[in-house]
């Protein structure tokens, strides 16, 4: 019942997120032959921008080819940008919307524990955010032969799993803020503002080590093509998720509505 209600409330957002990921993946693959044929010109254009991160990306694509391009499109942009936006929007309303819409009294007077409410909703959010990433990665792997490229399905899915952990970590942080906020927008602004700051840090060479985006960048994703899964980074993301989910449960349990 709880999961159905949560899914129904968020189905449009989850569906839109999946469509956006699939569409941009397909368009990205379609554009690859043009980029492949003029990679040095594109790298030259990128070098004019004072953004070290962008130059680094172009260099990696030149060196590693299609897999680096796919990883940037699929994981860094798909998860790190669209995924983070979806996590912020979905997570912010998870609890705070009950206060916003004044439905908290109706929900919390049911004989169901607050822990179960939060974890069920969090679980639905995890599926709604991760499944589109996995499906879009599968679609990307399946479409690659259309541009005379191939990537192992295992690597595409493993990359999607790791990116999902990053998105879920942002989502869990948003859920924690949502459990403390009286307005969904408050939680969304806070987390998206924080992630924007993280992204800005990543683009500055001397500060990029302090950015959370280090956990999903090309350094982490490129070894996947050689069958090396980023266990260390995944473990760090799991700890991040665990801490914020535990805080969210604790704060939600003691909150008055």
């Amino acid at each position: 019942m709880l999961w159905r209600q949560t899914l129904k409330e968020n189905i449009l957002l989850a569906g839109g997120y999946f469509l956006l990921l699939t569409l941009t993946t397909t368009l990205g693959i379609w554009f690859w032959p043009d980029l492949r044929g003029a990679i040095e010109e594109w790298a030259g254009i990128a070098s004019f921008f004072p953004i070290e991160g962008l130059k680094e990306v172009m260099l990696r694509i030149q060196e590693e080819g299609y897999w680096a391009y796919f990883a940037v499109q699929q994981f860094f942009r798909g998860g790190g940008v669209f995924g983070v936006a979806a996590a912020g929007l979905l997570g912010s309303g998870l609890i705070a919307r009950e206060a916003d819409n004044r439905t908290a009294e109706f929900l919390l007077s049911r004989p169901v524990s607050r822990t179960r409410i939060l974890l069920t909703r969090w679980g639905v959010g995890v599926v709604a955010l991760s499944l589109p990433l996995l499906l879009a990665a599968g679609v990307g792997a399946a479409c690659s032969p259309l541009v005379d490229e191939s990537i192992p399905l295992w690597a595409a899915l493993a990359g999607a799993v790791h990116t999902s952990l990053f998105v879920v970590a942002v989502f869990s942080t948003t859920v924690w803020l949502s459990a403390r906020s009286t307005h969904a927008l408050q939680a969304a602004i806070l987390v998206l503002g924080f992630m924007l700051l993280q992204f800005a840090l990543y683009l500055i060479k001397v500060l990029w080590h302090f950015s959370a985006y280090n956990l999903v960048d090309l350094d982490v994703m490129l070894p996947l093509a050689r069958g090396v899964y980023p266990w260390k980074e995944s473990a760090a993301l799991l700890v991040w998720i665990g801490v914020f989910v535990a805080w969210a449960v604790k704060d939600f349990k003691k909150r008055d509505f």
Partner: peptide, 30 residues
């Protein structure tokens, strides 16, 4: 709460659910 049928003072409900779905949701835990 297992022993209580509760009607809140604020008649705010999940707008996207139908009357039947709200009834099922509300009593589903009892």
């Amino acid at each position: 709460r297992l022993h209580v049928g509760y009607s809140p003072g604020d008649p705010a409900l999940y707008d996207s659910l139908s009357v039947l779905e709200i009834l099922e949701f509300a009593i589903g835990f009892h």
